[in-house]
Design a protein around this nucleic acid. Structure first.
Length: 423
DNA sequence: TCTGGGGTCCTAGGACCC
DNA sequence: TCTGGGGTCCTAGGACCC
């Protein structure tokens, strides 16, 4: 059996955790740059704020309902996520982190010993007691059915106290019949539209389709999902693998026009990406850079170039990667445009220990030790303490990213730790 | 004024190899 | 009328996830 544990309105729940006065009030959390709504408390959902809504377009609603607004606080959210995951991992060794607020727990061979409903309740109780984060638990024989059960647990909390177990064909059928096709894991907007035109409106309708038909129309992806939803475990556990692409991209609060400013941002994206490469013990062989003007300003000239340079040898050295990134920037930069977004992508990622040597050039052996030292210092005394000369020294300016509603980093910064006052 | 960021997998078609 | 057989690798585009 698989359990899918999902934190309820995770970002909003975390903010509420450190400010109990927010309980029962509408909360929204914004994307980077305070652009879109990416998380909502139930109260915010009820007053009709949509996922992905553009923040500056809903100011009236915000004022009218006194909605509490937060910028994304990734240090805080990341830390709370790892605490949740750490507690969940104690329930079973077969444990898979699926996203920042979701994990699959697999229970092999326990079927006859455990009441899964009790397990679900216990998971919920522990996370709530230990961390104050509410979770929903869906338990079923396959991953896609566990996803389905989880949606049920969330949608009808009164039925099972945020726990839903699908342990018989009868229950599975009932749940599938009540699940809209668009809510099925792996069925996006396009497929929903296609399926509805052929009369498939629920997950149950989908399961009842002919296998051969599914394969010819929707390929192997459709076939896999079809089997998995039919109760035959097909979507197996995902191993944690090194990333194949590492991207670092940001929109700017206002536009950027000069090459100097872009160079400084590109360098920082490259440095951050290099750190990610080293963390997963890999090197990159192709460094790409892109620029983008603001696509919402069609009245301004548009220019969105991308260029990738192969490195001379596989590398994770910040110095090398910055060099190639800046070389690419130099090629694609054109004056006279208002750049709104930029990014660096590390591609063709290979393991550190497998090195295809180049005849003509080789890595500077000093870089490896240097990077190790820099990483160690930054780890010990705080992120970004050691920077390259081209990077911005001012702290807290974060590329002029708009973050007007940032909460304290309650769990990761000494000065932000909440203080309890006894009367 | 203002519109996120970061990933994965699959398929079809073309180029190329012997 | 007919035009071998069996492969690999790469790319662009499409779909999906959180």
């Amino acid at each position: 059996m698989y359990a899918l544990v999902d934190c309820n309105n995770f970002y909003a729940s975390v903010q509420r955790l450190f400010d109990p006065s927010l309980i029962g009030k509408p909360i929204i959390v914004l994307s980077n740059n305070d652009g879109c709504v990416i998380a909502r408390s139930n109260e915010a959902k009820e007053i009709g704020i949509k996922m992905g809504a553009v923040f500056h377009q809903i100011t009236e609603t915000i004022i009218q309902y006194q909605v509490n607004v937060f910028s994304s606080n990734y240090p805080l959210l990341g830390d709370m996520s790892s605490r949740v995951m750490s507690m969940l991992s104690e329930f079973t060794p077969d444990f898979e982190i699926y996203s920042i607020d979701e994990a699959f727990l697999q229970f092999k061979g326990y079927e006859h010993f455990f009441d899964f409903y009790d397990i679900g309740k216990e998971i919920r109780r522990k996370i709530w007691k230990g961390l104050g984060i509410p979770v929903s638990v869906g338990i079923a024989p396959t991953k896609s059915l566990a996803k389905c059960a989880n949606k049920f647990a969330k949608k009808y909390p009164e039925l099972g106290g945020h726990v839903c177990v699908l342990d018989s064909q009868d229950k599975i059928d009932k749940a599938l019949k009540k699940t809209e096709i668009g809510d099925v894991w792996g069925i996006g907007r396009r497929l929903t539209k296609r399926l509805k035109t052929i009369g498939v409106n629920t997950a149950y309708d989908f399961v009842k389709l002919n296998t051969l038909y599914i394969e010819s129309e929707f390929g192997v992806v459709g076939k896999r999902l079809h089997r998995d939803l039919s109760g035959i475990p097909t979507i197996g556990p995902e191993e944690v693998k090194a990333k194949k692409i590492i991207a670092n991209t940001r929109s700017f609060a206002s536009h950027v026009t000069t090459k100097e400013e872009l160079a400084e941002r590109i360098a920082t994206f490259a440095v951050t990406g290099s750190e990610s490469l080293r963390k997963q013990k890999t090197c990159s062989n192709l460094i790409g850079v892109f620029l983008q003007t603001n696509p919402f300003r069609q009245d301004l000239p548009q220019y969105s170039p991308f260029l990738a340079f192969p490195t001379d040898f596989p590398t994770s050295s910040s110095l090398e990667i910055v060099k190639f990134a800046l070389r690419a920037l130099d090629k694609i930069y054109k004056p006279g445009y208002h750049y709104k977004k930029a990014g660096v992508m590390m591609m063709e990622i290979t393991p550190e220990e497998i090195q295809q040597l180049n005849i003509f050039t080789e890595a500077n052996p000093k870089h490896k030790a240097l990077m190790k030292t820099i990483d160690a210092i930054n780890q010990k005394v705080g992120k970004d303490k050691v920077l390259l000369g081209i990077q911005k020294f001012e702290k807290n300016k974060k590329w002029g990213m708009r973050q007007e509603y940032l909460s304290p980093c309650y769990t990761t910064r000494m000065s932000d730790i909440p203080i309890l006052k006894l009367k």
